[in-house]
């Protein structure tokens, strides 16, 4: 059975892109969220195998969302999506419970490698 994914990003463009990359590789995108708050709610509701999480989002940022999701489910697997130059924030997200990260602009191979590592 295909792994299920929840994609969280405030930009439709980025959500579409991540969804395309993952769907082409056989993953099942079960939901999308455009704010941190929505991400937490959808996680509780959908219980996906994997969450891709943008760092900067309105109405609760990605890092706080990771923290809430991990508190709710310590085994949650979250992959951070970062822009260049956000090293410090990525480390903070990992400390909050994220498993791995990818850096924009996305290269499909790198995204899939990271996803495989997180789901391993």
């Amino acid at each position: 059975m295909a792994h299920t994914v929840l994609i969280c990003d405030d930009a439709i463009f980025m959500r579409t892109m991540v969804a395309d990359i993952l769907q082409q590789a056989g993953y099942e995108v079960v939901g999308e969220a455009s704010t941190g708050k929505e991400a937490v709610e959808k996680y509780k509701q959908l219980r996906p195998d994997l969450v891709t999480m943008d760092i900067v989002m309105p109405d609760m940022g990605g890092i706080d969302a990771v923290r809430e999701i991990t508190e709710y489910d310590p085994r949650a697997r979250v992959l951070m999506c970062s822009a260049m130059g956000q090293q410090a924030l990525v480390v903070e997200a990992i400390q909050a419970g994220a498993k791995d990260f990818v850096v924009k602009p996305f290269q499909p191979s790198r995204v899939l490698e990271a996803v495989q590592r997180v789901l391993a």
């Binding site: 970062s82 260049m84 090293q87 990525v90 480390v91 990992i94 791995d100 990260f101 850096v103 790198r110």
Partner: peptide, 13 residues
């Protein structure tokens, strides 16, 4: 490697 510093942090983790 992009963000090698963060990757090194992941190794430590």
């Amino acid at each position: 490697t992009t963000m090698p510093g963060v990757r090194a942090y992941l190794v430590a983790r």
